[in-house]
Design a protein around this nucleic acid. Structure first.
Length: 933
RNA sequence: GCCUGGGUGGUGGAACUGGUAGACACGCAGGACUUAAAAUCCUGUUCGCCUUAAAGCGAGUGCGGGUUCGAUUCCCGCCCCAGGUACCA
């Protein structure tokens, strides 16, 4: 029979499901291998062709590893809590769990159609109570822990309490809030219970913190930064104000150093690691306190100094002004009456600027003088204090010591406002711009004059410490992560409040179920949606009303796959000790600093408290590129009055007509040629459309854009699978180009892949489509083809170069077709090698070859034998001055000298030399001959 | 602005360690089969020049330089595109 992909694919998908072919056990004599994909959020739009790209790659890898004798864990699940479902619920009143359920069913159907080898018995859903029970449980462990810097890890809060009770706060080196108390053991014991608890909250790894949020009173909710435009909500355009709010936070900063160091131990793409490094943002420097000169201030001020962080403390004698952020808490107090108007005008101006404007505009210098001064702690010099929007409130202390001779921004600022620029290093050239050099000796710098960078820095830090005005400090850019959302569709926080204190519910009360509410909106008093729940009250107090953020459930899910149905633990010790970590993780780079950082954080925490065994969760990570949409256009003719007609001009003829482009559904266009009948049927307004054709065809224009419904460029994998089959879809997505590269989707080449599979099928069949394979001994040429592909695919898979292996399969099948090879000895091995890429057609042929159904997935992978590829001759390219002129076959057993002689004696070579004597002859054995004349 | 990745035929791409640029596929053109179409198969296909043809010549991997016997690959400078982004002191 001809290649009937529909029957074959349905048959084998059913077989795998019925026989649980890919179910994997938590113990085996085989070595383990864990291949995981970033699980999807099940959106209402369903899967588009961009999603499966990574899944196909990981599935090929998983199937390959299985063939190579590994016990492979390859699971899939759903990140099913999230905003879109809630938004939909607000609009339609449908419960998010209902729409989520529907969407998951669609995803599952679409995934099944592509023939993935997932072990579905381990499926997880973050929104399922069985799952979020453990998300809540981990939250409780974090609440019950603090970070002991001395031990270099998280420990139980009990240990901290014990220490307080025996030794007070002395000897505690912890990551904590800034404002912790100092006390003796007796003083601790004497503290009221509430004060003790408040104190402990300053140490817990999850804690309450007041943070500013974008509050939109009209919508009654908190908005994300990108939902706010110029101080108004993007949705509705209502005013947004900064509001302080008590929120749950995660003390991820405790792990900053370990998160940074860990990057050196994992096999991730370097750009992605770089992103994480930059996000963590470690900088070594010093904090310096500049005393406020109160003699010039007319109003009283509580603060005594402005603290700055600098990485160049050695330049402190070059400081000629201080710049603080317009949002700095001291701005108002420092502003003198004369400067008040200036400062207020500047602050108003800053608020109008969007983040993007502030970033792109490095050329405009702006700022305003507060009228106040601080004193240089080392020489007592009076230094003016300015505000400027290039200083950000959120980083460091929100204040900068400006050294215009060494920093270009400070330099421009000083030039613009006519502030002094003092050179501090002898070789510094500051005529036209700042010179940040660290070479040379210091000048104009008091006691470090004549010193070099290293000694100077040490001397300044020592002096600052001596006078109590500063100290060496490591600063991280990374902030603690807010861990709460004023939303409904998320995990409830397992906490209730009594007398203003948070208490964990008991473990036996887990999971704390999400209550039913009447509508998915904030309450009239501005409480989160959970405030609407009736009869939802802890016996001891009021439940927390915010829910966990989107990243909670995804920060540990790889452990749940290891033991997905355990109701005693998030995963058993045995399962974790067996699977350990994810060997290969494939997903998009948009999660570089969110999910991938939080996951590493939770993993390190779980290791600290002894529940997991590996410091890093994902040993190797590959980013798949984004698949962009390729839109098609038709061109509507514009008549003399400038009105659109119902006539459409083919792309090649546009120059002669006035037209306007219209997006057309890519699904009714093939290779940029419009299907006229489908176009007429597409929309009623086009039913009478007329066309100006070129060569009898209507050719569409095209553009690369985001894949989106409104551009009519969304391609659904179902359509491809229906038309060409899953095996073609799988191979085509790989054939499209390098996995890690972003590329537009187009189906231009899909016929080639489909034809390849038919050609492969035909190798096993005669002219009349009868299955016909012989047991004859293979020829040398056939063995060569086979072993070439064995080696090539092995190399390609190991370096995740799937596109090149698809090409190689085509070459192999072309060669074997030319050789008219239908020998079992060759074809059976070829079936195994191709199986990870095209699992359905290969399963069918595998059984036709007489093997037991379903055994292909665990067959023995063919071994490469280099002997079949040994050549005795090589067609040397002969080049003259680097330009290839001809080929010359020469035995590979000859040595350098013989080759040289042979080449020079050749008549054709002599012709190219044209009587000239070669200056030099380069012979690279087995590669090239180059004659220099 | 900064960081990262990229720029190769009409198109997607290949060339893995500096060694035959354009594998493989699409598209296109021509041909075979067919009453016809689809399907299939065969041939050609980087560009320019010359040629009846065979063959030949020249240019060519974003642009300009450099290193080298030899550069898509390494170095310097520039332009453009994509993604990320936090003026990070």
């Amino acid at each position: 029979m001809d290649y009937q992909f529909k029957d074959i694919e349905q048959k084998w998908q059913q077989f795998w499901a019925d026989n649980q072919t890919f179910k994997v056990e938590n113990n085996s004599t085989k070595p383990k291998y864990y291949v995981m994909d970033m699980f999807p959020y099940p959106s209402g739009a369903g899967l588009h062709v961009g999603h499966p790209l990574g899944y196909i790659a990981s599935d090929i890898f998983a199937r390959y590893k299985r063939l190579r004798g590994f016990n492979v864990l390859h699971p899939m699940g759903y990140d099913s809590f999230g905003l879109p479902a809630e938004q939909y619920a607000i609009q339609t009143g449908q419960h998010p769990s209902v729409t989520t359920e529907d969407n998951i069913a669609t995803y599952r159907r679409q995934l099944d159609q592509i023939g993935f080898s997932f072990d579905w018995s381990r499926e997880v859903r973050t929104s399922s109570p069985d799952y979020y029970k453990w998300t809540q449980w981990i939250f409780m462990q974090l609440f019950n822990s603090w970070y002991n810097k001395a031990a270099g890890k998280a420990e139980s809060i009990e240990k901290l309490v014990e220490h307080f009770a025996t030794s007070g706060s002395k000897g505690i080196d912890a990551v904590s809030d800034e404002d912790t108390l100092t006390f003796t053991a007796d003083e601790w014991k004497a503290l009221p219970y509430k004060t003790q608890q408040e104190e402990l909250l300053k140490y817990r790894l999850t804690y309450l913190r007041e943070s500013t949020v974008n509050w939109c009173a009209a919508l009654g909710t908190v908005l994300a930064n990108d939902e706010v435009k110029d101080g108004f909500s993007e949705r509705g355009g209502y005013p947004v104000e900064q509001k302080k709010m008590m929120q749950w936070s995660m003390r991820i900063t405790a792990y900053a150093e370990r998160l940074l160091q860990g990057l050196d131990t994992i096999d991730w793409p370097e750009p992605l690691k770089e992103m994480q490094r930059n996000w963590i943002g470690k900088s070594t420097g010093a904090s310096v306190r500049f005393g406020i000169d109160k003699t010039t201030l007319q109003s009283p001020i509580t603060a005594d100094y402005i603290e700055v962080f600098t990485t160049r403390v050695d330049t402190i004698f070059g400081v000629t002004f201080l710049v603080i952020a317009p949002e700095h808490e001291l701005v108002e107090a420092l502003t003198t009456p004369e400067q008040k108007a200036d400062i207020e005008a500047y602050i108003t101006q800053t608020k109008k600027k969007s983040e993007l404007d502030r970033m792109a505009d490095t050329k405009t210098v702006s700022g305003a003088f507060t009228g106040s001064y601080v004193l240089n702690p080392l020489n007592g010099e009076k230094i003016p204090v300015w505000i400027a929007d290039y200083v950000l409130a959120g980083y460091g202390t929100g204040a900068v010591m400006a050294v215009p001779s060494g920093d270009q921004r400070d330099y421009l600022f000083a030039k613009h406002f006519n502030l002094p620029i003092v050179p501090i290093i002898d070789i510094q050239n500051i005529e036209t711009e700042a010179d940040p050099t660290k070479e040379g000796k210091y000048i104009n710098s008091d006691f470090i004059n004549g010193l070099a960078y290293k000694e100077a820095t040490a001397a300044v830090v020592a002096k600052l410490e001596e006078v109590g005005a500063g100290k060496a400090k490591v600063n991280f850019r990374m902030r603690d992560a807010i861990f709460g959302r004023q939303r409904y569709w998320g995990e409830p926080v397992p906490v209730y409040f009594k007398d203003g204190l948070p208490y964990l519910i008991s473990e036996t009360e887990l999971p704390l179920l999400l209550p039913e509410i009447d509508k998915y909106l904030p309450t009239e008093t501005g409480e989160p949606p959970l405030g609407r729940a009736t009869d939802w009250k802890h016996p001891e107090g009021e439940y927390e009303l915010s829910t966990m953020p989107g990243w909670a459930g995804s920060s540990w899910y790889w452990y749940r796959y290891m033991d997905a149905h355990n109701d005693q633990e998030f995963a058993s010790k045995e399962a974790i000790e067996y699977w350990k970590d994810v060997d290969l993780y494939i997903g998009g780079s948009e999660h570089a600093t969110g999910h991938l950082l939080y996951s590493r954080f939770w993993n390190k925490f779980l290791k600290d408290i002894g529940f997991v065994v590996e410091e890093e969760p994902f040993k190797k990570l590959i980013n798949q590129g984004m698949i962009q949409g390729r839109s098609n256009f038709v061109y509507r003719l514009i008549d003399a009055e400038g009105r659109g007609t119902n006539t459409f001009i083919s792309h090649g003829l546009l120059a002669d007509h006035k037209t306007s482009p219209i997006h057309v559904d890519v699904n009714i266009v093939k290779n940029d040629v419009l299907d006229l009948d489908k176009f007429k049927a597409w929309r009623p307004e086009f039913a009478d459309a007329e066309f100006v054709l070129e060569n009898g065809k209507y050719v569409c224009g095209h553009e690369v854009e985001k894949m989106s419904k409104r551009y009519y460029n969304v391609v659904n994998p179902d359509d491809i699978a229906n038309q060409y089959g899953a095996d073609t879809l799988r191979m085509y997505e790989m054939f499209l180009g390098p996995l890690e590269q972003s590329k537009p989707w187009n189906t231009n080449g899909i016929e080639g892949v489909f034809k390849f599979l038919r050609k492969f099928w035909r190798l096993f069949h005669d002219e009349q489509w009868n299955f016909r394979v012989t047991d004859e001994a293979p020829t040398k040429a056939e063995l060569k083809s086979l072993h070439k592909i064995i080696r090539k695919v092995e190399e390609d898979i190991e370096r995740f170069s799937f596109n090149t292996s698809v090409s190689s399969f085509m070459i192999a099948v072309n060669e074997l077709t030319d050789l008219k090879c239908n020998k079992r000895a060759i074809l059976q091995d070829l079936v195994i090698i191709l199986a990870p890429y095209a699992p359905h057609i290969t399963e069918e042929l595998w059984t036709l070859l007489g093997n037991a159904a379903g055994t292909l997935s665990y067959a023995a992978y063919p071994t490469f034998n280099p002997e079949y590829l040994v050549e005795d001759e090589f067609a040397y390219p002969i080049s003259v001055n680097g330009k290839t002129k001809m080929n010359l076959s020469i035995s590979l057993s000859l040595d350098q000298k013989d080759i040289e002689a042979l080449v020079l004696a050749n008549a054709d070579v002599q012709k190219y030399l044209d009587g000239k004597t070669p200056k030099k002859l380069i012979v690279v054995k087995g590669r090239i001959v180059n004659i220099v004349v």
